[in-house]
Design a protein around this nucleic acid. Structure first.
Lengths: 213, 213
DNA sequence: AGGCTAGTGACAGCGTCTGACATTTGACAA
DNA sequence: TTGTCAAATGTCAGACGCTGTCACTAGCCT
């Protein structure tokens, strides 16, 4: 009994196939565009039947958002574990910065960080993918609102503040992420700075007077 | 020359076909679901070839969002025409309430208001449609940000406030619309009230202390 | 009346995705 | 080792969305 911890040959093989499909898919998407890449091409690159691809991924989209799922779940967890004395927006802010700092390690095990960034850009520039991205983000918002409501001991259907706070926060975050991923400086430091800057801009943006230069 | 204002027989015929396709599509979507409705069914209901449907609409989705386009354009116009002395958020708030009051008349000419509401609910409950809805909304946000920046004489790339303000506002609006369309009271009055309530909740939601009973 | 062109139908084809069935391959016990 | 079971995969057929092409009809203009 030497193979106690090992997941067994079958499981390992499966993992390898999934991984090969994922990487082949992303490489092809980045090289020639999402729409111009067919499932047949991906399957052929891994030397597997088209049918097998659909047994691992519900469709081309699922391959694209595989890494995103990880960071989303991580963000949700980070919020849950913020100390409860923090105000909701403060907790959200700290959580997102946390996740961002750790992004390199966590995603890095699944995908090269540089590849991840290019996938983000691909999503932004492909309408169909952007649409799905936003829908996923909306689902995340709902779950975040639940977490916030629970933290504060509120009823999500009676007090609008959890949903409103999350909507505001995620809205700002979206603007930030878009600007950052499309910009020149793609360092984590630049992301921290932009995030902080935009969150600090919420107050002034809501103010009555913008023109008091 | 009696037919000066009339658009000509050809044009009228075209309009009638488009209208018939639109209505048939929406009826079928609502009756049996979006995904479970094929383009062939829609075409057959209007007694037209499948190919013709695609000459009027880029796809099934375009039919669903036909009415939405109208209200979006109207909202954008309303914001443009708000007096420039109003603060950005105030202008956005007034504009959306304006559009909402006039919605019955404008959309009503194209679709029965009650049908429009049911289409909204269909969108909310169909992932693929929700995704597209959100993407369209994101495009609208960008255009709104441009308008706000111009009103205030700002450079969109240097000052984050326009995008942030719009993101906050649209985020709140999205939460509001979703709750309203899924709720029981679908009166315009209820929409006004909810919108105002949620916008007023932004301040408190951003506050440090939520628990000061 | 007759030519021009927009609108249409019919058909073929590509790509995504699913269901059904047969085959292979790893897991496990006899 | 061998046989059995279940999981993974391949193969095939087909539905559906969408596009290109080509010929034909019907409104339009002179």
């Amino acid at each position: 009994m030497v193979t106690v911890s090992r997941p067994g040959l079958r499981e390992r093989k499966k993992q390898r196939t999934r991984d090969a499909l994922l990487h082949a898919a992303l490489e092809l998407f980045l090289a020639q565009g999402y729409e111009r890449t067919t499932v047949d091409e991906i399957a052929e690159a891994v030397d597997v039947s088209q049918r097998t691809f659909f047994r691992y991924f519900a469709g081309k989209e699922e391959a694209v958002f595989f890494a995103q799922s990880v960071t989303e779940a991580q963000f949700l967890d980070a919020v849950r574990q913020r100390p409860s004395h923090e105000a909701p927006l403060e907790a959200l802010r700290q959580a997102v910065l946390e996740v961002w700092d750790a992004l390199g390690e966590v995603v890095g095990q699944l995908l090269p960080p540089e590849l991840h960034l290019r996938v983000c850009r691909l999503i932004e520039s492909t309408p169909a993918l952007l649409a799905t991205q936003l829908r996923r983000s909306a689902e995340l918002e709902e779950r975040l609102a639940e977490v916030i409501a629970e933290r504060e001991g509120l009823d999500l259907d009676k007090d609008p503040r959890p949903r409103v706070a999350v909507a505001v926060f995620c809205g700002v975050l979206r603007v930030t992420k878009r600007l950052w991923s499309c910009g020149d400086d793609n360092s984590p430091a630049s992301m921290r700075e932009l995030t902080a800057c935009h969150l600090d801009a919420v107050g002034p943006a809501l103010a009555q007077k913008w023109r008091t230069g």
